[in-house]
Design a protein around this nucleic acid. Sequence first.
RNA 1: GGGGCUGUGGGGUAGCCUGGUUAGCCUAUGAGGUUUGGGACUUCAUGACCCCGGUUCAAAUCCGGGCAGCCCCA
Length: 482
Amino acid sequence: MIEKKDKGITTKKSENIADWYEQVCLKAELAEFSKVKGTMVIRPRGYYIWQAIQEYFNKNIIEKTQTENAYFPLFIPESFFLKEAKHAKGFSPEVAWLDKELTKEGERLAIRPTSETIIYDSYSRWIRSYKDLPLRINQWCNVVRWETQATKLFLRSREFLWQEGHCVYETEKQCDKETENYIKLYQKLCKELLSLPTIIGQKTEKEKFAGAKYTLTIEAFMPDGKALQCGTSHNLGQGFAKAFGISFLGQDEKPHLPWQNSWGLSTRLVGATVMTHSDDKGLILPPKIAKNQVVIIPLFFKGSEEKVLKQAKEIEKELLKFRPILDDREDQKPGYKFNEWEMKGIPLRIEIGPRDLEKKSVIVVKRNTGEKIPVKIKDLKKEIPKLLEQIHQELYSNAEKFLNSQIIEVKNWKEFTKAIKDKKIVKTLFCGEEECEDWIKDKTGGASSRCIPLESRNKKVKGKCSHCGKPAQTEIYFSKSY
RNA sequence: GGGGCUGUGGGGUAGCCUGGUUAGCCUAUGAGGUUUGGGACUUCAUGACCCCGGUUCAAAUCCGGGCAGCCCCA
């Protein structure tokens, strides 16, 4: 016998987070699996979230940093790819190639896993003098990385949507400064839009972007102790410029190689947000990215239906800017509706019945806490934005509290392995050796370096690597990851 | 990287071991009636064996391959 609750989320977040997460994505109608392994359909409720990210991004990052949006092709000739050796090597295992179609010269074509090469081919023609710099271009597109590992909705798929920014600068100093600025803007987006706390840091040599001088990252931490890379900003140095023949005449009338960076964030952020905030009843969304911020549920009783519905419609009209849903279905009981909209993550529910009409008030219910708050109808327009903001803050501070509670400082290998086993994030001293990092990954069942905290990356440290005992070079975070 | 499990109407499942009548149930969907302050009741209707191949008089069931999804360990 199937329980009625089977219509809802049947697995608890604390019991099996993978199954729970999948159910939330599917049942809240954010996404569904598609036929080809590792590909997904993003449904309107899910795509709205991505659009909200795009909107914020274009307004607060693209415009404010004087970056421009453009678009480059999906297909990349193999020869472009091979120009920067480290880059080509790093991406080669996961590039998807077209089977038959070749260029006129007989070259294979790759489906972009990232667009450095095809963009920099253009840049080599566009940049002539220092007056052309800085050049800042962003593109919104899809990329394909042929993952062999287990794929997961939003978090790891073979095709995903992202933005990639590509800037060119006259000086190293400016490049450093802006590479750091972009990652900080990413962190701000996560906080202000998605209620997601993150850690900023620098990737190790082992984990940095293929072909980069260094990579900055923001890392979020999921409830199961796994980290999720949410955005990266790479200082590419001059390697790509050299490989693609990008040079400019300086004021000194001599040719110079420019400095470049690239930076990106993807639909993975949607997954991070869903997994962080949602609960056993289903989706919880930060209000700013909710397709509908309010659902109005009229409670019908014989004799008063008309009056209640009329008032509900007035409220709907009054609250139009919060994209309300008026659920006036007559064939469903209120309890059913409550559960349905909770599963779909509507931040606020307004209940209105005959008893409320008499008092000229309604009950407003917060999705994240379940609090029921009586509000006078005339005050709704004023109170709703306050409650939405409150939800945003509560989600952030809960996630932040969790993040801080997860970080454990360790001094030796015993503490290190115990912390990883306890699904914590290890903060420790590290020698910086790649072999040491490999060894740790092997012995802990996959814990890898997350990042060197941004504030301490140029600081000298005293002490020993908590694993090998060699003199430490840096502070660092280690954890398992998605 | 290694091991294991699963695939049946839109969703969740029974049946499979031991091949055999019309593939059962819950839910969903559509129509009707009674209802409505936390997943209502009822009548009728709609709708399925992942794909390819093999064994067999006969395949959801056995065998092989493919595709897809999940779990565990490192």
